[in-house]
Design a protein around this nucleic acid. Structure first.
Lengths: 226, 226
DNA sequence: CCGATAATTCGATGGAGAACGAATTGTGGA
DNA sequence: TCCACAATTCGTTCTCCATCGAATTATCGG
């Protein structure tokens, strides 16, 4: 009886130290082997073996930069699969004990390279409600007013549409169990929020903290009170 | 360093025998412990231990019926998480070798309790293209013509809408990498296709074989040539 | 109540792999 | 050229758990 693909992949994720490293990479940023070793609470030589296996298994991609080796999740699909597992974990926790409804990660966090959490869900709702974005078939499209909105935000939506990556997709949120915006457009929006300091990253978690400017702008532009 | 939830869940899935049993349950049907043991190629006592762990971990639900114990996937979310892992496995295979593009599972299969594969994707496209179904926000809605269509098919869409379960959702197909129709409406459609013998289940795989009547009806009703 | 079958528990065995110390390779800066 | 630091390789130890045989419990049909 041969081992099915989901088994070998799950076995990779199913080791606590490796899971901690993957979790640390869920924000889409690249991290060095040493940093990931510290995150997982193991020595560097052990981490090295784990990272080799994860890379070999297609879950991580590797970028060499001088004497550093930067690891990141290998594509959106990896992040999506991990999200699916997180939903299961969250559900299980919800059955057993009272979940902490107000953690900073639930409020706003990065999911791979786009915005998730209550803010991410509210943003997609707002884009829909204001008619900036429409769903045609299974794809998301910009309306003319949406095109103007993104042009005002200096987001070059035309070039995003030309990419091979899907322009705008729905991603299911593990904490909210509703969709938020993913794809190239979702990534561009998060990049914008970070660049213009609407949101600040945290070094040690995926949580995103809104600044005062962010609060003001989210309310004015999208009618969202953070 | 405590083990994160995704690690314990993935460790459950990551054991070859358990993965084979989960895979056997991916069609949404319930199976006995003995049958799952045979599927996985292990003895019954070993399978019993595995099934206990899977149930304990919230991946399977158990239904006692006489001296049989029927196991099934515990909810849609489990099937979705497994699909996410399958997408990763499929991607990896695609990188390495030529995939077999014409397997019966790719043509049509059950995904938990709804229709997937090329036929599932084509069906959703057709429903959209003919204006039977519309996407409003992140939800799928029936148009008036869609309501008439389902009434003709003796599918009681009103009662489906009253359920707690989401009425109609998009589910990402691991082989086609596009969406098909899930949720209560997707389940009702598959049930209809099976009841009226448009499709036949296979006992040992998730593949669904179209009958002659099915081929004719899919062409006439939805313009799909199987 | 009795045999037959489903499924479980228990105990023993074996193998896979996670962990670390020590030594080695590779890269950048002074 | 030499040192500092990132990262890996190697060898060893040790823990976990999948597996099966044997015995046990549970349920059905008579």
């Amino acid at each position: 009886m041969d081992t099915p693909p989901i088994a070998s992949i799950s076995a990779l994720i199913g080791e606590p130290a490796r899971a901690l490293m993957l979790d640390a990479l869920m924000d889409g940023r690249a991290r060095t082997a040493s940093e990931l070793a510290d995150r997982a609470g193991i020595t560097r030589q052990t981490a090295s073996a784990h990272l080799a296996r994860l890379t070999d298994g297609g879950l991580l991609s590797l970028e060499r930069q001088g004497r550093h080796r930067y690891f990141r999740l290998h594509g959106e699909e990896v992040a999506e699969a991990l999200e699916g597992l997180m939903r299961l974990g969250e559900r299980r926790r919800g059955e057993v004990a009272v979940s902490r409804p107000q953690s900073p990660e639930r409020c706003a966090r990065s999911c791979y390279d786009h915005l998730a959490g209550r803010l991410g869900v509210a943003l997609l709702d707002s884009l829909h409600g204001s008619g900036y974005i429409e769903t045609r078939g299974t794809r998301l499209l910009l309306s003319p007013s949406g095109e103007r909105l993104f042009a005002r935000m200096h987001i070059d939506w035309r070039s995003l549409q030309r990419r091979r990556r899907s322009f705008a997709r729905l991603c299911l949120d593990w904490s909210e169990r509703r969709h938020h915006l993913a794809g190239a457009l979702g990534a561009a929006l998060l990049a914008h929020f970070l660049e213009y300091r609407w949101l600040l990253r945290s070094d040690d978690s995926r949580a995103l903290a809104p600044t005062d400017r962010g609060r003001r702008n989210f309310r004015e532009c999208f009618g969202i009170s953070v």
